[in-house]
Structures are given as structure tokens and as C-alpha cells.
């Protein structure tokens, strides 16, 4: 534990409601509907994980929640207020690193407070606390190019959390890391969540990641995106990877989610999707093993 208790801002968790949202792209005659009449709630102070086959419009959902784009129909609200533009109360962690290459780890973390002119003693103390939390105290003055992939992701987590957002939105943040680093990142991330209990929305295609992290699991359909099922992941916290491997409940949830994804894949397979063919094959292998 750190010797002196750092000042930490009070966490205000938000709740996002998505109601009847549709999103289409392209000119009228080539219109492609990516999201159709989609409704779900990202509950307050919970970690909601969205899982679906790749290319199912999850990234579009992220852009809508972040406010980078507006829906074609329906509403997205945060605590009842419609989302119209990006704001510090909903921070996004992208698939690839978005750390500014020309700033050191420390300057990256302080970007938000500095930009808003809120660089107070409390903020600095909070940033210091987060830097240690993500284990980067020895890399404070390094540039992102000098950090490993896992370190970059952790620096980004700290950079987002120092702004004390109401909701954290994560778009497959650990994709592309090797398996060992990925597990390390899950534990870092789960610990950060368990200590802060902020509203988190996490998008992934990885079922193991989803079940380990989630309080609630949204299983999505193929394009156009809709919610197929909501599974409450009632596993005790704090969670450890080792416990989860042997947990029957965890395996049961995985099986349940996978069978829904399988049904989805079969549907798109019949429509000629090659990615779905891979999924069906992988699913059958896994089912035989279990």
C-alpha cells in the first residue's frame, strides 16, 4: 500500500440508456444498416461487457456512445441527458493506442486536466496514485514508443481515469497483445474496476475475457446489431483468473453465451459469411472438448 493516502476525487457513476437506436451509413441507394432498433442499458457502477462476432457493429456502438457520431434514429442518454458530442464524462479507450507519441507517460496522463486548466495539487496527487496503480512509476518520463504494448494500454487506462469520467468505454482494448500480457492486463483492469466501481462498458470478441470481467454480458447479433441476450455474471468479486478456470458457474455462462453466438454464426453462415464459418468450426471443437 502507498505510504500516504492520496487525495482521490469522488466517483460519480453514470448510467447510459440506449433506446431504439438505428445507424446507417452511405448514400441512400447504397445504404447499409449497421445497427437496427437496438436497446440496452449500461447499468450504474457495473461492468457491462458486449460480446459479438467480429464485424457485428460493436465499434459503431462505441462511436455512438462516445458521441463521435449521432444515431440515425432513437436516443442515447447519459443519466437522462442526450449524448450529442464527445465529453470527458465518457472516455474511450480505442483498439489501438491513442497515446500522444510526443508526450511522456506523465504528460499523457496529465493531458486532460491540463487541457481543461484543472491542474491542481489534488489532480497531481491522483495522477501519481494512478501511475503507481498501473505500475508505471519507473516509466514516467518515457515516451510511448519506449513502452511495451501492455504498458501503453495501462498508461491509457490511467490517462482516462485521471479525468474521473462517469463512464469508461473500452473498445477491444487488449486485442493484439500476446496471451500472457492479456491475462496480466485483465487482472490490472479488474482490480482497477473493483477498487473504483465506476460504470464501465467493455467491448470484446473474446469469451474468456468477457466472462472474467463482466457483471453483465450483452450477447449481440450479427449486422444489423441487436442484443440477443443479457446474462448476469454472478461470480464473486474480487476475481482471480485461477479461481475462474475451475468455476462451474463460469463455464456454464461461457457455454450459454457461446451457444447464442453459435446460433448467430449459423444464421450468417447460411447468408455466406466466411468469418462465421471459422467461428462455427471453432465452436464445434470447443464443444467437443467440454
Amino acid at each position: 500500500m502507498s505510504p500516504r493516502e492520496p487525495t482521490r476525487p469522488e466517483i460519480v457513476a453514470g448510467e447510459i440508456a440506449v433506446q431504439g437506436v438505428s445507424k446507417s451509413y452511405g448514400a441512400i441507394q447504397f445504404r447499409k444498416e449497421v445497427v437496427r432498433d437496438c436497446s440496452f442499458v449500461i447499468e450504474r457502477a457495473k461492468l457491462t461487457v458486449m460480446i459479438g462476432p467480429s464485424g457485428c457493429g460493436k465499434s459503431t456502438a462505441i462511436r455512438l456512445l462516445a458521441g463521435f457520431e449521432a444515431p440515425t434514429a432513437g436516443t442515447v442518454t447519459l443519466d437522462g441527458h442526450p449524448i450529442v458530442a464527445p465529453d470527458r464524462d465518457r472516455l474511450v479507450l480505442f483498439q489501438e493506442t491513442a497515446l500522444f507519441p510526443w508526450m511522456t507517460t506523465w504528460d499523457n496522463i496529465l493531458y486532460g486536466p491540463r487541457a481543461r486548466g484543472e491542474l491542481t495539487a489534488e489532480t497531481l496527487s491522483h495522477a501519481e496514485f494512478l501511475l503507481q496503480k498501473v505500475g508505471l512509476q519507473d516509466f514516467r518520463d518515457k515516451y510511448p514508443g519506449q513502452l511495451s504494448g501492455g504498458m501503453q494500454r495501462r498508461a491509457e487506462l490511467a490517462r482516462a481515469m485521471v479525468n474521473n469520467p462517469k463512464v469508461m468505454i473500452l473498445d477491444e482494448p487488449f486485442r493484439g497483445l500476446d496471451a500472457m500480457t492479456k491475462e496480466l492486463m485483465w487482472e490490472y483492469y479488474a482490480r482497477l474496476f473493483e477498487e473504483n466501481r465506476r460504470t464501465n462498458f467493455f467491448v470484446t470478441t473474446d469469451i474468456d475475457e468477457a466472462v472474467f470481467l463482466a457483471d453483465r454480458l450483452l450477447v449481440m447479433s450479427n449486422i444489423p446489431t441487436q442484443v440477443r441476450a443479457v446474462i448476469e455474471v454472478d461470480l464473486p468479486r474480487p476475481r482471480r483468473l485461477a479461481d475462474l478456470v475451475e468455476s462451474d458457474r463460469a463455464n456454464e455462462i461461457k457455454k450459454q453465451a457461446l451457444s447464442i453466438l453459435h446460433a448467430e454464426a449459423m444464421r450468417s453462415f447460411s447468408r455466406g459469411s466466411k468469418a462465421a464459418a471459422d467461428f462455427v468450426e471453432a465452436y464445434l471443437k470447443r464443444a467437443r472438448r467440454a
Binding site: R88, V92, A98
Partner: peptide
């Protein structure tokens, strides 16, 4: 980079 900066209130 622009999206990240924008959402942090720059």
C-alpha cells in the same frame, strides 16, 4: 488523437 483530446475536454 483528435478524438481522444476532444473527449478529454480540450
Amino acid at each position: 488523437y483528435f478524438q481522444a483530446a476532444q473527449s478529454m475536454g480540450a
